[in-house]
């Protein structure tokens, strides 16, 4: 018999619901992007995010069931993100998930958002299995994780200040380019010279840890822009952006490859919104090839927040017979890998 999991995700921008069969087969993957509302504000606004989640959550679940031609009665478990994220937003999805699980007398499975991002890869690659080195990069996270087995993680490193995606957003804001910064900067950077400005590669040269730090790079870029403006020289914003993007990617790639070599793991997966960056994908793939390492990344719709990845993670958790209690609470800071799950 197959297992049908309903996944629910409301940790940040997106209200999302998905139905996934046996952890691999996506029957429906609905995401109501709130990006339009947030664009007006230059970022995610917590109060508005929670409001919209509550308005969208039932319609989104309803649509997921309708699209997959399934009934709630056929669902074997509810998987829901319970952290990390904006607590007010997480609570909307979590409250609905608990109610559904209780009303249907089926298991509730709380999922770490970062873990879910990794599972986007299992959805895309049928044969993929741990051990893996996982680079999770998004607006709120930059983590390097060793996945030893399903459900077993070791945190190797994380950012000590700003997340990689956050710096994209901040630079974009400084230059008045819009939100979210990632895709906008990627597009403009294509027309620039990545060697134009030599920005620092933080924590690359003199640090053996797998931690990241992007605040120095952020400051260097902002300072450079200011200097260019003051000097009234001719400068191209595209050059600055291309150089900045290259610096971020260099650090991400270098650390990830080092981790794979250090732990003798042959497979690398990318996850999270920033893993949609095409240059990052290309760079890491090329450099990994030389080292005889294999790189996986999810198709674009599964890079950003979605509920299919939550449902997939939930399926493997269910197979491991791990369920959450109905008093599960939302958690804003929830690192992956301190303990099992």
């Amino acid at each position: 018999m197959s297992d049908l999991i309903l996944g629910i995700e409301t940790s940040c921008d997106e209200t999302a619901a998905a139905l996934v069969e046996d952890g691999k087969k996506i029957l429906a993957n609905i995401v109501t992007s709130q990006i339009k509302i947030h664009q007006k504000y230059g970022g995610v606004v917590p109060e508005i995010a929670s409001r919209k989640h509550l308005e969208a959550i039932i319609p989104v679940i309803d649509r997921a069931l309708y699209t997959s031609q399934k009934k709630l009665e056929e669902v074997s478990a509810i998987a829901v993100t319970y952290g990390p994220g904006l607590v007010g937003s997480l609570l909307v999805g979590l409250s609905v998930a608990k109610a559904l699980a209780f009303a249907r007398s089926i298991p509730l499975i709380g999922i770490n958002h970062l873990e879910a991002h990794i599972y986007a890869n299992f959805l895309a690659y049928e044969e993929l299995v741990p051990p893996l080195i996982c680079l999770i990069v998004s607006g709120g996270h930059t983590s390097l994780v060793q996945m030893k087995d399903f459900g077993e993680y070791k945190l190797l490193g994380q950012t000590r200040d700003d997340a990689a995606g956050e710096v994209f957003d901040k630079i974009s804001k400084v230059l008045d380019l819009g939100y979210p910064g990632g895709p906008i900067i990627e597009k403009l950077a294509k027309k620039g010279n990545p060697l134009a400005v030599n920005f620092p590669r933080p924590l690359l040269n003199n640090d053996k840890s797998f931690d990241f730090s992007f605040s120095g790079l952020k400051t260097a870029v902002i300072y450079q822009i200011r200097k260019f403006k003051e000097e009234k020289n001719v400068w191209k914003v595209e050059d600055v952006l291309a150089s900045f993007q290259r610096a971020v990617i260099d650090v991400l790639v270098e650390k990830t490859l080092n981790a794979a070599l250090a732990f003798k793991i042959k497979k690398i997966v990318l996850a999270g919104g920033v893993s949609a960056n095409k240059l990052l994908r290309k760079e890491i793939k090329e450099r990994a090839k030389i080292l005889d390492l294999e790189v996986f990344y999810p198709p674009l719709p599964l890079c950003t927040d979605n509920a299919a990845m939550v449902a997939s993670a939930g399926y493997f958790r269910l197979k491991d017979n791990k369920k959450s209690s109905l008093n599960l609470d939302a958690v804003s800071r929830l690192p992956l890998g301190r303990k099992k799950y």
Binding site: L86, T159, D162
Partner: peptide
């Protein structure tokens, strides 16, 4: 704990 930028979650404790 690491004291990181809370831009994403608004509040870190």
């Amino acid at each position: 704990d690491y004291v990181t930028s809370p831009s994403f979650t608004i509040i870190n404790e």
